[in-house]
Design a protein around this nucleic acid. Sequence first.
RNA 1: GGGAGCGUACCCGAGUGGUCAAAGGGGCCAGACUGUAAAUCUGGUGGCUACGCCUUCGCAGGUUCGAAUCCUGCCGCUCCCA
Length: 404
Amino acid sequence: MSFAPVDEQLELLTRGVEKIVPEDELRAKLQKSRETNTPLRVKYGIDPTGIDLHLGHTVPLRKLRQFQELGHTAVLIIGDATARVGDPSGRDEARSKKLTKEQVDANAADYLNQCGKVIDLSRAEVHRNGDWFDPMGFGELLGLCGQVTVAQLLTRDDFAKRYRDEKPIFLHECLYPVMQAWDSVQIQANVELGGTEQLYTFMLARDYQANAGQAGQVGVMSPILVGTDGVKRMGKSLGNYIGIAEEPYEQMKKFMRVSDDNLRDYFTLLTDRPAEEIDVLITGHPKEAKVTLAKSVIGGYHSPAEADAAADRWQKEIGGGGLPADIPDRPLSAPADGLMQAVDLLAELKLTGSKSEARRLIQQGGMKLGADKSPVLTHDEQVAVSDGLLVWAGKKKFCRVALT
RNA sequence: GGGAGCGUACCCGAGUGGUCAAAGGGGCCAGACUGUAAAUCUGGUGGCUACGCCUUCGCAGGUUCGAAUCCUGCCGCUCCCA
């Protein structure tokens, strides 16, 4: 096959990228690849530690797909060995749980499945780094460690902070960058993808590659995708993520909660829309832009029809003001005289976790009844309960009474 | 092996004998404002048969009229010296 002109490739590949190190080497590599008609080997590694791939992961994965589309080779590393260490990047404490081999296997399969929604797995190489780390001898490991100083490790923000705070830093965590860097030698990576926090690791890989007589890889680093809270990086443990396997409606709700300020980043990093089009979208009504964004991304992971349905439902249930499209029924045993205290009603319907909570909610004006949302004023108000009565506990929680 | 320190509500973190259901921050929930976004403001954030009562400050005992606070043991965690 023949490769597209280098400038054309670069235009696509540098979109939404924060940093390329060394800057000029990517062009040189693309040039050489085109001349020799050899695809670049583009590495991306993931640790099979959890089960939800979220949009933050898709940023480098999408970049990987772009490389694929240009004819390069995607090399996916399943970090089954590194997963046993746990990536210390950006963490202020060590991961506590140790994964069993079975868990790692299951997670790895699941991960691949999810990755397949972004990249073309049939054309990707997949490796497990346990393949070379498990049989590795101690001498060899020592050799690798001999190129990393403790001072270097401690310059990393995450370790430095922990050290300052007298939080534990385990020795095996220090091996994480070492292992990840060695992966690059094993698969002879020309390019590695990841977030900006990977700089040190990417550079270490170049050192190892040089020692092994290989040309050093180029690091292509994506910006960190901000989570739905609009502040911190998207991450599972921070609870601000949108998982790609989540239900369309769940994704929809989260997308609509994204801060306006982050819209441009989301469009740039998560869609293929050209920059000019993005400009137009975000100068328009932000709400509309969010719907467009959400439909576009959700449509890619589910189907356009499901994305539309989710958007419609959001509009009805949350965005529009009308009644929610789908109101769940909750069973309630009918009181003898048809009356019930407001607090008891909320608690019985499980709209609140306790009666105290119900009491607070009512005090703050959060309990409403019926389609016209007439407020309940006091916690001991006697409510006439009827089958099909609509009960609201705040704006987002509601149900219909089903008398039993 | 020796020494020091820590363990408080969802999380972080004050409190070191009574006025402590326990400051403050984060998160979360509700209300206002909006585009039922974000930001902001206000209130709330153990439970109950609720102007009172019960349970909570690693676990188990003890001292005391009274303990999250003092003592003993246990468990868990961290740092330092060697």
